[in-house]
Design a protein around this nucleic acid. Structure first.
Length: 634
DNA sequence: GTTAGGG
DNA sequence: CCCTAAC
């Protein structure tokens, strides 16, 4: 899975910004998916294997993933006891599962971290579970795992885990995630647990297929939140990438610059609104060299809490038309900083809206949120839900114009990634070396075939869910314990409408998804009357004047709207009453519409003055009811 | 930025 | 209502 796009070399400022700049992100490539799959597999595995464990109050949000790697957080349901082996700790206060990924290059084996028993909380439990995948088939364990990007991670200390975790990703159609009883005490200097996506059996092969390899720099650490030895902990953000795009000047994408002022004379909103809206169009998404990101994004960024509509009005008398959805959506995008890192990592960090504010992502990996729902201990149903908060794209080349602005760069990245993932995401999980029953999840919004994101055999597809690079999408993996063969069921719950709206699933829907239509606001009779009157006076070719004349205060009516309405009015007046829909328009108004339409059609509509008088006459005459012909006679 | 039309 | 070509 290599995505090649133009790269933007980090050249001297002078050099950059000239000619066609290209951005290439390819360093420290990581197969986030592998990692994710591995984690998911572990989780599932754990579910199965874990025979008994006390549920822990997972108040803390354990975070997996060091600064460099994807963070995976496993948290246990408060409500539901986790059936796992607790190490004499009774209840585990937290289910922290910290994992670190080390550079795959160096070692393709999964390293097992050992956590002090005394201090380990749920981690120990989980570790034990992992260690003994086969120990129990009763999956009472209720795991709620969340991969979060957390700043708290820094506080976490890598712990040791008894047992070994072997996560491997097979090169064939699916990811093979398995747990190995064999303890691998290979530890990285960072002391993190290493999960190597690459199959230990055939590392080379793995690497070849998955260019993205975990760099040592990008190790994912799974520190134990309760690790007694803070010193062992590795700063999460050591290598963590806060995705922020900087321009050549080092300016961050988030712009504090206020929106440009609006014209004093004409309704200022036009400029801003139009511009904003245009920016949202595909054309601008591709390249918006001359547009300042700040112009449209700033409010969203800075005014995160503000009502988008309010912002617009405050900023530029914007019309509801553009403000509402546009800003809203943009804010959604912009709230998440996207960074193109020189080290090749593409990732995003999203503002986690979830209760867990500790969501942390690793630049190298994907952050996965696991929602564990464990049924009763005796329940046969065990569910593990996870959502991908972010993940890394091994290679992404984006071509941008030299004049590209920060905003355009960001959009380009988003677009490119969206294109890559637009078709959906395939995730294969293999538990205990068993091939899960392929489960196809109808992509809720995908209309196109998914792009072969992974060199996997589609036959092994067990999960296919629409997702996006950094915008949270939720795919729930449900493990049905009733299935002895470790079949993993993947359920894709309805996605939040807003999320969907902001997540382009494919090229085709991208535009439509990006810009939401304004809410429909049918013209009232009074509005129609005002419109008719204005057109009678001004003609049909001066919509801006019509707007200013009769709808100046109606921010939600643009002159284009008025023009459109007139068009529909004319049509309405020409069809049989039975065919008309919506709020009935008084026939007299429709007659006036026809009259004016006919008149201005004959008079090219732009002159008024004398014509205005004429139209007034027309409307007052009975000729109106007799159709166009009568008007001509006038 | 507006206008005019198709979608 | 949206999108855009053409002004």
């Amino acid at each position: 899975m290599t995505f090649i796009c133009p790269r933007v070399p980090r050249a001297p400022r002078s050099a950059r910004g000239r000619g066609l700049n290209k951005i290439k992100v390819e360093d420290s490539q990581i197969c986030a998916f592998e990692l994710l799959a591995s984690l998911a597999g572990k989780l599932l595995q754990e579910s199965e294997s874990s025979a008994s464990s006390n549920a822990s109050e997972a108040n803390d949000q354990p975070v997996i993933g060091g600064g460099g790697g994807g963070g995976v957080k496993f948290e246990q349901d408060d409500d539901r006891p986790l059936k796992a082996e607790c190490l004499d700790h009774g209840s585990c206060g937290e289910s922290d599962f910290v994992t670190q990924f080390s550079s795959p290059n160096s070692d393709q084996k999964c390293l097992l971290n050992e956590f002090p028993h005394a201090e380990s909380n749920s981690i120990l439990e989980r570790s034990s579970v992992i260690t003994n995948p086969n120990s129990s088939k009763n999956v009472g364990a209720d795991l709620k795992s969340m991969i979060c990007k957390s700043k708290n991670a820094c506080e976490n200390i890598p712990g040791k885990v008894e047992g070994s975790l072997d996560s491997r990703v097979s090169c064939d159609s699916y990811m093979d995630i398995g747990l190995s009883r064999q303890k691998r005490r290979d530890r990285l200097d960072n002391g993190g647990l290493i999960v190597d996506p690459c199959s230990s059996n055939d590392p080379m092969k793995m690497c070849m297929k998955f260019p993205a390899v975990i760099n040592s720099v990008n190790n994912v650490e799974l520190p134990s939140c309760r690790d007694p030895v803070p010193s062992a902990s590795i700063p999460r953000y050591r290598n963590g990438t806060k995705l922020v795009i900087r321009d050549d000047d080092g300016n961050f994408t988030r712009c504090n610059k206020p929106l440009t002022k609006s014209k004093a004379f004409r309704p200022p909103q036009r400029i801003g609104d139009r511009r904003i809206r245009k920016l949202l169009t595909s054309k601008y998404w591709k390249v918006a060299p001359k547009l300042k990101d700040c112009e449209f994004s700033k409010p969203a960024f800075l005014e995160g809490g503000m009502n988008s509509r309010y912002l617009k009005r405050k900023l530029s008398y914007s019309r509801e038309r553009y403000q509402h959805n546009t800003f809203y959506k943009r804010r959604k995008f912009t709230d998440r900083s996207v960074v193109v890192t020189s080290d090749g990592g593409f990732s995003s960090e999203s503002v986690c809206n979830s209760p867990d504010k500790n969501m942390t992502g690793d630049k190298n990996g994907a952050a996965i949120m696991f929602h564990g729902h464990q049924a009763a201990l005796h329940s046969k149903d065990s569910q593990v839900k996870f959502s991908i908060k972010s993940f890394r794209v091994p290679e992404l080349l984006i071509e941008v114009p030299e004049t590209a602005t920060v905003g355009s760069l960001k959009r380009s990245v988003v677009e490119a990634v969206s294109a890559i993932l637009g078709g959906g995401l395939r995730v294969g999980v293999l538990l205990h070396g068993k091939k899960p029953t392929p489960v196809q999840v109808p992509p809720s919004l995908c209309t196109e075939d998914p792009l072969p994101l992974l060199p996997c055999d589609t036959s092994q597809l067990i999960s296919r869910s629409p997702t996006t690079p950094y915008f949270s999408s939720h795919a729930d993996i449900v493990t049905d314990n009733t299935l002895s063969d470790s079949r993993a069921l993947v359920a894709v719950p309805p996605v939040n409408a807003e999320e969907l709206a902001m997540v382009p699933l494919n090229q085709k829907s991208k535009r439509s998804e990006l810009v939401q239509r304004r809410t429909r606001r049918p013209f009232s009779v009074s509005e129609v009357e005002a419109l008719v009157h204005a057109v009678e006076e001004l003609g049909t070719g001066r919509w801006r004047d019509v707007k200013l004349c009769s709808f100046e205060d109606a921010d939600h009516r643009t002159y284009v709207d008025l023009k459109d309405k007139w068009k529909t009015l004319v049509h309405t007046a020409q069809i049989a009453p039975q065919q008309r829909r919506g709020e009935p328009v008084p026939q007299d108004l429709l007659d006036r519409v026809l009259a004016a339409h006919s008149y201005w059609s004959q008079h090219q509509g732009k002159q008024h003055g004398k014509n205005q008088t004429a139209i007034l006459k027309i409307t007052d005459s009975h000729a109106v009811r007799n159709g166009v012909e009568d008007i001509h006679s006038i």
